[in-house]
Design a binder for these strands. Sequence first.
DNA 1: ATGAAAGCGCTAACAT
DNA 2: ATGTTAGCGCTTTCAT
Lengths: 325, 325
Amino acid sequence: MASIQDVASLAGVHRSTVSRIINGEGKFRSDTRRKVEQAMATLNYRPSAIARSLATASSNMTGLLVTYYTGGFFGEMMEQVQNELDLHKKFLITAQGHHSADGEREAIDRFHALRCEGYVLNSRYLSDDELRELAAESTPFVLLDRLVEGLEDRCITFDHTLAAKMAVQHLIQQGHRNIACISGPMDRISSQQRYQGYLLAMQEAGLPVNPGLTVFGDYKRESGYQAVRELYQTGMTFSALFSCNEEMMLGAVLYFHEHAIDIPRQVALISFDSVDLCQGLYPPVSEVYFPLSEMAQSAVKLLISKINDTSFWGPQHFAPQLRLR
Amino acid sequence: MASIQDVASLAGVHRSTVSRIINGEGKFRSDTRRKVEQAMATLNYRPSAIARSLATASSNMTGLLVTYYTGGFFGEMMEQVQNELDLHKKFLITAQGHHSADGEREAIDRFHALRCEGYVLNSRYLSDDELRELAAESTPFVLLDRLVEGLEDRCITFDHTLAAKMAVQHLIQQGHRNIACISGPMDRISSQQRYQGYLLAMQEAGLPVNPGLTVFGDYKRESGYQAVRELYQTGMTFSALFSCNEEMMLGAVLYFHEHAIDIPRQVALISFDSVDLCQGLYPPVSEVYFPLSEMAQSAVKLLISKINDTSFWGPQHFAPQLRLR
DNA sequence: ATGAAAGCGCTAACAT
DNA sequence: ATGTTAGCGCTTTCAT
């Protein structure tokens, strides 16, 4: 691939002149400009972003760490992040954490290796302490959907506990007393919080919490199906069900349909949302909305404000909202 | 951030020695190694991938172009691409084509700017001619789900026509004669092919093709819903329905449910698949499987073989498969 | 086993 | 308005 020197030689000027023309700095005689532009065209010249990065000490790259890519959740984040970065002509580097602290650490290492100007972390496995240590380094980063004490100004957060509580409260208001819960894995903080919300709503309403009415799944569709089966097999009685994520709700709904259990007559449903998977369901299933897109957008804007050292205006904390159907 | 020179100075050696130790080339006195490692640790040194790229003239980066990110389709590709690249310690750069040829062109420009070693294109808007021109340049690329004459060795392909045909043939074998079709937008080649497949199946079975039985949607859920409504409003009679994608099938199913139309008694369904969205549906909906994951994996492996100039073993052409439910 | 020196493609003072 | 020069952080011959 042609270099700036090749262009300069062909145009009969010095490479710094070519550089200036590319970057539009200063004035040039029109025939100089013409010669250079012609040379660039004939050589099909593209400036090397890499060389430029080294020379300017700014990589123009931004990192995004996620746990995994499949399922639509990540795409939703990525869409926002990429769009915003496109506006600023920045490159996006993605990396996946592979469901482990080591994986996340390695991903961040790569961001550092590329001298990313900053990065957005949807970290689920790094400890608060480790994140605080990371914050001591000079590269700015933002935490998406996580609250770490001491790093509040880098956090974009959502109140999972309250969201779950609101969902369950809605069921309670409908007159339900025996409310089952399909929870997520307890090694994830947001899962714990959602489960907490369920417990809180029950307790505050003075309803007894029957441990047998909670089944712990793994956020996958199949586990939602199995959870409901388990509930019935253990002889539980419930008139409503709260699922801590959409995929498991889909599995649950499948079970209800297969066993001709009438929704919402025999069982009322409400789900925690992520990417609107339940929207197509029939009968419709209410959800408590998780504003991932908006949060991702805020995250990247917050990050850019940190990179450019400007002030950030948007919201950092997002409130849950019921979507009744 | 500390540079290699900082490490060298602190360790009291020359920077080329540090470089060699990092890259494990040659032998070193154990105390030299110790001093250098210590210096790297205290300075928290990370080699700059950018500087390294410039020096070695290999960016270690690979590009991936997609049309958009949301909806799960992209995540499926990304998962495979990233996993494979991780194995080779390569960086992934993503870019979106924004539903236009200009957008795709710009995305590829960025790959060139970063001196990507190669890229995977899920291009929908660049013309065959333009892609052939692009192939004349030195950077290797692979086309995912596209067949361009003259570039066969860079293509990972799927027979959309045959897939659609098989789906419709299945319905015909079940005894259906009036088969409706929800097609995608005709400006997309794969949409045309799928619609072709529908027509072919009907014709080969000697069934009349009623133009009123085809409705053209936009691949979104809502348009599937509207399509079915339109079919009924125009007084069409059909006992089976083929949808050219999953989202539209979800919309259609919603309509059927809302209007108490019995599946599969009153209307039998089969859908073109992409990310298994229909899997959770009840009653179950059969699909013709689109092996996106496998194709993406092949694409990136093919690309890497081109980059490394080794030979490629996997499949380049994928055959459709029915998934009856 | 390690140092010296050149160079990767570009930018950014500093000259003229 | 344009040329000169010195880097940016690293690798890679070539010496020693």
